[in-house]
Design a protein around this nucleic acid. Sequence first.
DNA 1: AATTCGGGGTT
DNA 2: AACCCAGAATT
Length: 406
Amino acid sequence: MSEQKTMWNQSKVEDFQDSLLTWYDQEKRLLPWREDTNPYRVWVSEIMLQQTQVATVIPYFYRFMEWFPTIQELAEAPEEKLLKAWEGLGYYSRVRNMQKAAQMMVEDFGGQMPDTITDIMSLKGIGPYTGGAIASIAFNLAEPAIDGNVMRVYSRLFCIADDIAQAKSRKVFDQVVRETMSQVRPGDFNQALMDLGSNICNPTAPKCDECPLKDYCQAYTEQRQTAFPVKTKKVKAVPVYYIGLVVKNQLGDYYMVQRPSDGLLANLWTFPLVEVSADEYAAMKKAWQVYLKTCQIEEAEITKISLFDRVAEETADDYLLEVNKRLIDNLPKQADVIWQTQPAGEVTHLFSHRKWHILVAYGQSIEENSRLFDLSGTWIAESEFQRYPFPKPQEKMLDILVKKGY
DNA sequence: AATTCGGGGTT
DNA sequence: AACCCAGAATT
């Protein structure tokens, strides 16, 4: 779109910086990673804060620093402990990349965070934003740290109409921020922009009357605050349908599998998930809803667990009403597992690009130890859950069982 | 340049 | 529901 020049003289730039920094000195949020500028703490906080709200990060930050007090200990940590530290935070490759970066620091940088922007940016998982944040906050280098907040603030300050969803727009903002940022207190300047973007210059209802930069803001002057930033919208999440296979054995252990080392929720643990078509899923859910409705009319006659083999052979009409035939047909056949004839519940979970729908099937295994459904899973006792990293959909499936009293 | 990576909060 | 968030790696 447009090449943006600030057209501010040196005096105006300095006044602008003073206004922002003075406001920051008075209003800055007290956050655990702001107690000092230790590069390790700054790094951990910045990785956690990628696409993640401050309030969410705080407890994770404390626990992470407790579990991995030094770069060396992070470099040597077992993966399951890493993932457990990240459980529920999302974007799990962040913590895997952090460990790789920690190992790079041990090997190439004396076990320390390097102190030049080039070396910092060479580390796994550290891109332009995070590199600039670490360089400026931990080492007082005059590097911009351009995230969604900063692009929103600057798009309003200078009425920059470039689409912030486009990668090429980043360099437009990079140039303007470099021209206007404090060379004396770059770390505080960058953090001030973040606090401003979070507390004042927010997306939908900016509090311009409280803003220390309103005298410098072109959008405010023109009363076009909500016209910025310009951002094209995202594509809708693609639906995916599963049956969740929840099997408990005589000891009360659950059968779980570890997800593949690549892709979504890599290496995390869940109940086995069997993908089904949208049509199959709709049929199973429909039969279930009809059943629930019927049960209410008949005052909640609970369907008992039935042997799979027996269910499959059953043909009597009054029995079929209780049996979700499509569900049973889609369940793996194994002689020592008996299944509930209706789903135990439904879980939905929205990711950035996928929407999972899971019908939860509940079964019991007669054998205490056996390999189920030709999957390389593991029987896990509830007392061992703290050792395994679970994603949110897994938590939701477990919640259903707990509420049902299974 | 577009897609793939989670999950929670706000409106 | 749609949108946002202290984004980076991969394709």
